[in-house]
Design a protein around this nucleic acid. Structure first.
Lengths: 347, 347
DNA sequence: TATTAGCACTCTCGCTTAATGAGTGCTAAA
DNA sequence: TTTAGCACTCATTAAGCGAGAGTGCTAATA
């Protein structure tokens, strides 16, 4: 028999009380506290009985004999899935987020950085934004800019307005006028493909013999091939407000703090985590204790996806202690993600 | 009478011993230790007398009565200026640094990031690199790339190979062909000026009436003016290896750690500090206790400048506990700065 | 006169012990 | 089924104590 079937109204009430108080104080909650602050019409003794049941169901546990109860990861999960009701984000927060985007230039890096910043600011935790996968973006234009005899700056412009540039080393000197010709030629012939397709196409064309005779085409292809060699698959993230987390008592210990910081230093893990959220739209909640964050057990991630024209571009989220105010953070992440999608839509 | 006049050979020996041992252990050093490990032909009692003198001169102090001695900031300064002898950087370190630059593309951001990384790695401390001031760089070419109806990507290319791009919002749609014309025109007429001069020139030209009749000129000027409005004076830095510092016992305390991290978070202070080094070439050493780093007293900065053709471009350095191995870090910073300058020279 | 040995003194650090108090589980009564 | 009462557990804190490191001072020595 699962918790789902067996939990009565009062059990839920008690579990919720424990969770809420634990979120507030960070300390184990005792029966007396629950009775007094949350369910005054029931005595502590009764609460204790209920708590014992919940402990048996592995929803609560005690750090030690004479301490209060703390939610287990199963407890958190149950609370999030079956008890928590999510309200709309407060109006002033919504306004605040909107304002964060005003005035700033429309450069994608800047927008996403602003997103990360406002998320961390409002959540008072760490925020993370996964940048759109380059290989997925739809190609719109390419432009070559001569830097000096040996170097050419290659700029990809995506339909979504994402601009990405790479510096490419060249064997021979090519004039800017000629580079402009390449740009025009390639932009015309590759428009509408994803960057991944662009790469495939270029490699294929290089194999075919006919380009041997078309000097213009050959040079252009060669150049863009070099540019595309540079990390197309790499995904990048923006992290902001890591130091916010240091104020939480769960990290008020040198060892924990170091672990926390080294987790953030190794971005790949966080990228992987966010990658998982990309598979489906909407808010995802990953609890550290549910095995994903092996290093920092008491952390969790609330994330959502942002998209443009139905296609998921990337993900964003808030990372904080498992003991966080889900009723506030979930709407925050949700709203921000939707607003961000809308901004991309408008472009 | 200053320390300079009064310190005899032996006083220096003792001061040096205290400094060196303190660098190694991080603990106050007692007379016994000095006698045993560093100056075996003198008894602890004598050392104690010397130490008492040094304490009177404010070169050493005692954390508490029964502890050993620790250098004061004056002590550090004296050690650095008058006692320390600097050897050449070990060959394997030199090779290691050289290798760090191999293979990577010649993009300036990448180079500087690699610099920061290798510095932090070899010093096992935090490394910081101040990017060249944009306003000082010599203009070489400008290029405009149409992103969409409203946005134009403006790319400045400097003589030094620095590439910087800004996204600019436009009122009207301009075709790429036309943008190319602007690029050619402006690149021709502004070549060789510093970006600061470029900006001045553009503002001046806008005032003059004649441009009213030259449509091409007017548009081009307008566009670049907008691009130049964006942070020309802002200086950016690259910081790497902050977490290295967390391993030092001086930061093995939650309060210190938080202070340390928030210092790094507020980059402006570090920028100001490095700015000071720009005024003259060579290695500078700033001790935290000498008032600059107000927040983190026990930290210091060793920095040097890198340049191209005699002009100082930027600065780089290592930030670590005041108790660091100056005899190793100074040559490290020095060598790296020189090598970096050479790389720019070669371009 | 400069150096050194000897010794009493100070202060930190780590350990043990005891007191406190929060919270529990169980039993018996309502 | 709920609740009051009570004995019990265990973390946390404060206090006390001894050991050890290091000093400054004095007197003896080279």
């Amino acid at each position: 028999m699962t918790a789902e079937e067996i939990l009565g109204q009062r059990d839920k009430q008690v579990l919720e009380a424990v969770v809420i108080d634990y979120i507030r104080t960070g300390e184990p909650v005792g029966s007396r506290t629950v009775a007094k602050k949350y369910i005054p019409d029931i005595s502590p003794a009764t609460i204790r009985n209920v708590m014992a049941d919940l402990e048996e169901l592995n929803l609560l546990y005690r750090p030690h004999t004479s301490a209060g109860r703390v939610p287990t990861s199963l407890g958190w999960r149950y609370y999030i899935d079956s008890i928590l009701t999510i309200n709309e984000l407060a109006k002033r927060d919504r306004e605040r987020i909107k304002r964060a985007y005003e005035g700033s230039p429309k450069e994608i890096q800047t927008i996403l950085r602003a997103t990360s910043r406002i998320l961390s600011e409002l959540s008072k935790q760490a925020a993370v934004v996964l940048l759109p996968k380059l290989s997925q973006t739809i190609f719109k234009r390419i432009q070559f800019v001569r830097v000096n005899q040996k170097q050419v700056l290659t700029i990809f412009i995506a339909e979504s307005g994402i601009v990405q540039s790479f510096l490419v080393e060249m064997d021979e000197d090519i004039s800017q006028d000629e580079l402009n010709k390449y740009s025009r030629y390639l932009s015309e012939s590759l428009k509408g493909l994803s960057l991944l397709e662009v790469k495939k196409r270029i490699l294929k064309e290089m194999e075919e013999e006919r380009i041997l005779f078309d000097r213009l085409l050959r040079k252009a292809i060669e150049l863009s091939k070099k540019a595309l060699q540079v990390g197309l698959d790499e995904t990048d993230i923006v992290i902001e407000g890591q130091t916010n987390l240091l104020n939480y008592p769960e990290f008020a210990d040198v060892g924990q703090m170091k672990k926390l910081l080294s987790t953030f230093e190794e971005k790949t893990k966080i990228i992987k985590l966010l990658d998982k959220c990309l598979s489906s739209e909407g808010v995802h909640i990953i609890l550290g204790s549910e095995a994903e964050f092996k290093d920092v057990q008491n952390m969790s991630l609330i994330s959502s996806t942002y998209s443009r024209g139905g296609d998921i571009l990337g993900a964003l989220g808030v990372i904080g202690p498992t003991r966080m105010d889900y009723s506030r953070i979930i709407p925050l992440v949700d709203y921000t993600a939707k607003l961000l999608s809308q901004i991309f839509e408008d472009e």
